[in-house]
Design a protein around this nucleic acid. Structure first.
Length: 984
DNA sequence: GTCCGACCGTA
DNA sequence: TTACGGTCGGACG
């Protein structure tokens, strides 16, 4: 070796661990052998060697070697027996890769160096010194801080994963000291992963500052008495010896006895056949292709090399006997997978198609068993930090919070679980209380990390943009975390992924997905907390039980994610998920968090009025019925009306009871019967009272004084949201009595509510998807759509049209959207079935495109089992091929409705996702509070109302663009007022 | 105590 | 004739 030569030294052992955690897991397709780290290693070598042939790259190697640890039994153990004693066993799926990486090195025709009793770092230090003395340049391929002490003007490091060169200035920038002082710095700070003690309370910043002040460790220890901070001075004096031992441990040995000299590292030509044979064994298809091209070897003519899985003596834990755990092909840990969609995702595993990947992922996941006893309980901050580091390194973590309430606006966190790999999960108990105890319900259980410490440690992880957080129902987690000052991102939600994939195929709850996909029944929540009167909140659950339950949930979530996420790609649903579902999580969470102000007094007064009116009607009903019966019981009312009084009964319900529906009672009232009218009125009043005026005040949050609904993102088959607790999507509006309830929904003083709603959005969507020229024209001209329909059908001029004619046309238009039947239309309009059938035929004659749309939609649904919205969202109808004609007909109507209702739902979702950025852009402070399918409710200060309305309208009217250019314009009406009734 | 059907509020 | 959720009564265990 001579001046001008350039030696590359790869820290093979360091690379394995880093690659294992940083790269997406990968298994050999044919048998599940874990090869993720091997793949990363081969790709790195390929890149380094390719650059070696590329003369345009300055730092090309002339000499090359890969260095490995031999075992953890090194001379350092003699100095300090605890050295590296806290290392846990390497992950099971990493063990077989130790040997494979050595084989890879040989396949690349590179020297593979290791020596008993020494670490790779010592060999690297020795070779670097020798090369430098010979006048050559050295590049160490590693980012390990332990090697930074070796950096000189002639020796630099290279972080292959970050593609970053590390020279003297980089060391100073990172650690605050030059390379030659790294030893002293490490001696002071110690190293928890290697169990190097250091001095307590001294971290890198303090160490750098002290070394700056005192020059070096010896000076510092000699003059420690001069240190002003008492605690720090005491620690340094007390632990001086520990620092000296630490210095010995971290100092790399530059005179390791070597068996192979640096002259033997001279870079040899690539042996294409040997390399390709190995790559074939590993099934690294893209590398095979590149290697064949570069070496001019015909890859198809080469057989895979026989695979030898060696028992490698590279022990990374004190108690691991690798020799007893050699991996055999086919028996490798199956729980290894490619991380599709993670922020740290790499390009590809060479699998054929997304569908193949989804399939192989399914097989792998199913092979992994659940073991609740393997879950860890985290009770101290050091252990928590280890898990956080692991999550940081892997780039993916599934988590689940356990709380004492289903309401995220009130819930207190009881504990939190994490999963980093299938089967590897832990629970952090935080607020578990003892079951018995005093009147206050018992105190905090011992050995739990204080809540604020847990969140302080977790915050960087939960907010790290390079770590994907996965939860089942992320909106809940987002809200709980946000209340602790954490802005959770980026995220994935397994419930929403399932929803996008399988809307209409049953529930998307974790338990049912776990059963459906993983063939596993998780611990039941009810079994932990009990039920009914004897139930307890989660904080009373024993921590051991809670660990099994909570960690299992995180584990399941991670496994479901690995299974379901690739299906998004395979089924072409990525953009539905990423544009219509995932971004809505924080938007809806903020809406729920804001809530809306509801006036207790107004509701209370209304409730009193309703009670009085109902009581008066009650008396009249008892008079008319001749006895005191329960008016609220349809069974009892039916018996009175159709039994005792002998009124002509209409239909019966499927349980054999007389139907007492409002429609039927209205018909009887029209015939002059008094009692049915009274019952209808009574029902209306009591409905308004019990469902709204009495129930709503109970939802006013005591802390915020506002009502916070909860939106379900994955509840409907069509893509609509649903609202519950309370349901704010069914607040009365039709009758004047009911509308009064809306006056209780108010803006804060100085503010207004703005209501903005799409006009006829579903008919507009119908005009677009069914391509109906008359409808399109009518919407373009802005004329009354129902009057136009009536005019087309009945030949009546729009001008001076009788309201009854228009009403019928309107009913038909709605009927079309609902997948019309003569039976249904006849019911709706109270006309004979024959007449309704004639209407429908006339409609189809006038608008043949509608019939074509309905027929083609049914045919599509029969063929595929689902239908699609204009944005590609799917709604599944498994019963569309049912042999039961009723079930089949129902599915057909639903399938006709879904693309229309669902496309409208998609449009308003798009508007909601864009709304906040648009308002921010316009420097407006309006807050979106509610969504009612085609309406958005905002609250904003009075002075901004005028400027806000056009922005809202603009976003809503253009929400389909640019993905879809609708054949009809969207119209949005908006109004501002002090309460919802006046704004609507 | 839990579940289901009838009924009815919304889009 | 589509999509929901809440309340009630009544039957079940």
């Amino acid at each position: 070796m001579k001046k001008g030569d350039h030696l590359f030294l790869v820290d093979g052992s360091g690379y394995i661990f880093r690659a294992y955690h940083a790269l997406p897991p990968l298994t050999r397709k044919s048998d599940g052998l874990p090869v993720g780290a091997v793949s990363g290693f081969c790709n790195m070598l390929w890149k380094l060697l390719r650059e070696a042939r590329d003369t345009s790259v300055r730092d090309t190697p002339t000499h090359f070697a890969v260095i490995f640890d031999y075992s953890s039994h090194t001379f350092r153990k003699q100095i300090y027996p605890e050295y590296k004693a806290n290392r846990s066993a390497p992950p099971e799926d990493l063990i077989p890769q130790f040997g494979l990486i050595r084989q890879a090195t040989k396949a690349f025709n590179l020297p593979c160096i290791e020596k008993e009793g020494f670490e790779a770092d010592d060999l690297i230090a020795t070779y670097a010194r020798m090369a430098e003395e010979a006048g050559a340049e050295v590049t160490i391929i590693s980012s390990d801080k332990d090697l930074m002490q070796l950096v000189t003007p002639n020796v630099s490091m290279y972080d292959s994963m970050k593609d970053k060169q590390i020279g003297i200035p980089d060391v100073i920038e990172k650690w605050g000291v030059p390379p030659e002082k790294m030893i002293d710095l490490q001696a002071l700070t110690g190293d928890s992963t290697d169990n190097v003690p250091g001095i307590p309370g001294i971290g890198p910043k303090t160490a750098a500052q002290l070394l700056e002040e005192f020059g070096d460790l010896d000076q510092l220890l000699a003059r420690a008495g001069e240190i002003k901070q008492q605690k720090r001075r005491e620690n340094i004096l007390q632990y001086a010896e520990q620092a000296r031992i630490s210095r010995q441990l971290v100092t790399l040995k530059k005179d390791t006895p070597i068996d192979v000299g640096i002259e033997d590292f001279s870079l040899e030509p690539q042996d294409g056949r040997k390399l390709i044979a190995f790559l074939k064994t590993m099934e690294f298809n893209s590398l095979i292709k590149r290697a064949a091209e570069a070496t001019g070897v015909d890859a198809s003519a080469i057989q895979p090399a026989p695979l030898k899985i060696e028992a490698v003596a590279e022990a990374h834990g004190p108690d691991v006997d690798i020799a007893s755990a050699p991996a055999t092909i086919g028996e490798a840990s199956p729980a290894i997978n490619l991380a599709v969609g993670s922020p740290k995702q790499s390009a590809s595993n060479g699998a054929a198609t997304p569908a193949d990947l989804a399939k192989s992922r399914t097989d792998e996941i199913l092979a992994a068993k659940f073991d609740r006893s393997a879950y860890a309980t985290i009770r101290d901050m050091a252990t928590l930090q280890v898990w956080i580091d692991e999550a940081m390194a892997s780039g993916i973590v599934a988590f689940d919070t356990e709380t004492n309430s289903a309401d995220p606006m009130q819930a207190e966190v009881v504990g939190l679980s994490l999963a980093t790999r299938p089967g590897r999960a832990a629970y952090i108990p935080i607020n578990h209380k003892s079951g018995d105890g005093d009147l206050l319900g018992g105190g905090l259980v011992e050995h739990q990390i204080p809540e604020q410490d847990v969140f302080r440690l977790l915050k960087p992880l939960l907010e790290d943009r390079s770590v994907l957080k996965i939860a089942h129902s992320m909106k809940y987690e987002w809200l709980v975390m946000h209340r602790h000052g954490i802005d959770l991102h980026p995220v994935d939600d397994t419930m929403l992924i399932s929803y996008v994939l399988d809307a209409g195929e049953g529930s998307h709850g974790m338990d049912s997905l776990c059963d459906r996909w993983l063939g596993h029944t998780p611990l039941a929540y009810k079994d932990l907390i009990g039920s009914g009167k004897s139930s307890v909140t989660f904080d009373k659950v024993a921590i051991e039980r809670a660990t099994e339950y909570a960690a299992e949930d995180a584990d399941i979530t991670l496994r479901l994610w690995r299974l379901l996420k690739p299906r998004l790609v395979a089924d072409g649903l990525v953009s539905v998920y990423e544009r219509l579902e995932r971004p809505l999580i924080p938007v809806l969470a903020r809406m729920e968090e804001r809530g809306i102000s509801v006036d207790r007094q107004i509701l209370s007064r209304l409730s009193g009025d309703l009670a009085q009116s109902a009581a008066a009607i009650e008396e009249e009903i008892y008079q008319l019925a001749g006895e005191k019966i329960n008016i609220g019981s349809p069974k009892q009312m039916g018996d009175i009306l159709f039994g005792k009084m002998g009124l002509p009964g209409g239909s019966k319900t499927k349980t054999g009871q007389w139907s007492t529906s409002a429609q039927l009672l209205e018909d009887l009232a029209a015939e002059g019967h008094e009692l049915p009218r009274k019952i209808v009125d009574w029902r209306q009043l009591t409905k308004l009272k019990s469902t709204y005026t009495d129930a709503l005040p109970g939802y006013i949050n005591p802390r915020t004084k506002r009502v916070h609904t909860s939106y379900a993102m994955a509840a409907t088959s069509t893509g609509r949201l649903s609202s519950s607790e309370p349901n704010l999507q069914n607040i009365p509006v039709r009758t004047s009595e009911g509308r009064k309830i809306r006056t209780a929904f108010i803006a804060e003083p100085g503010n207004k509510l703005i209501s903005a709603d799409y006009s006829q959005i579903e008919l507009r969507v119908l005009a677009h998807v069914a391509e109906i020229p008359q409808l399109t024209q009518a919407f373009a001209d802005g004329i009354d759509i129902h009057a136009m329909t009536a005019s087309e059908m009945f030949g009546v001029p729009v001008k001076d049209m009788p309201s009854e004619v228009r009403r019928r046309a309107k009913a038909i238009n709605f009927g079309i959207i609902y997948g019309i039947s003569a039976f249904g239309l006849a019911n709706q309009l109270s006309i004979p079935r024959e007449e309704a059938g004639q209407y429908i035929r006339t409609y189809f004659d006038r608008f043949p495109g509608i019939r074509d749309y309905m027929e083609s939609t049914k045919a599509f649904a029969r063929q595929h089992g689902y239908v699609e919205t204009i944005f590609g969202r799917r709604a599944h109808y498994p019963e569309i091929r049912s042999s039961n004609p009723q079930h089949r007909a129902f599915s057909e109507r639903a399938a006709i409705n879904a693309p229309i209702q669902g496309s409208a739902a998609d449009i308003i979702r798009r508007a909601m996702v864009r709304m906040e950025p648009a308002l921010n852009e316009a420097k407006l402070s309006a807050r979106m509070l509610l969504q009612v399918h085609d309406e958005l409710i905002f609250e904003t200060s009075e002075v901004e109302v005028e400027a806000t309305i056009p922005v809202i309208q603009d976003v809503m009217q253009n929400a389909a663009m640019p993905a879809i250019s609708l054949a009809v314009p969207l119209q949005v009406d908006a109004r501002a007022a002090n309460n919802w009734e006046e704004a609507h």
